[in-house]
Amino acid sequence: MVVGTPHISLAGSGALLLDGAKGAFDDATQELVWAVANAALSLEGVREAVPGMNNLLVVFDPLATDAHSVGGQLMSLWAATDAHAVVGTHHTIPVSYGGASGEDLAGWAAHCGLSVDEIVRRHVAATYTVAAIGAMPGFPYLSGLDPRLAWARRSTPRLKVIEGAVIIGGAQAGIMPMTAPSGWHIIGHTDVKLFNAEAELPVLLRPGDKIRFAIAGIEA
């Protein structure tokens, strides 16, 4: 077992945060997070299980169970659950790189010391995994970015990053499901819709899904 003992803390009287992180994000830990999240939903009194990045928030009814009992059961699940890889769906996301809706592309290439064509080639060469969905409806935290392409977040977030923006934040990649503030860098744009509250399945992407980006155009 490569995964160690998680740290458990209270998030109010009706939720626990199970943190399995050991520094940098780790794929094996994340597979265990997904498996424990699924199993936790069967525990008595548990209402929601929310995978984060190498951590899991479990929301329960404190009048139906208690933090001590849920915490103990989560520790058992963490130790005993088989972290088999989730078989996710594969998606291809066409991206128009650069231009007015990818304004940070040139700065990103310069930051990484690569040409624009080379940085785009590397961005589409990788297979990304949806590690978690959160922050805003349908927003995917994507792991799998080429470490050479990492770029620390902006010190001042933009108040408006538009829906469809393809973005980079530190070692993570993402796609904006709606127009919202963000401190991540904007490298391109896609027309793929990630969230529709009216649809029977409101989100396109789920944890464990795999993503490849494809070049719809490059404008330096």
């Binding site: 998030a11 109010g12 939720a15 984060g52 990045m53 928030l57 959160g134």
Partner: peptide, 11 residues
């Protein structure tokens, strides 16, 4: 430096 994690109202 924390990794992104679920939060609840009241945090």
């Amino acid at each position: 430096e924390l990794l992104s994690h679920g939060i609840v109202p009241g945090t």
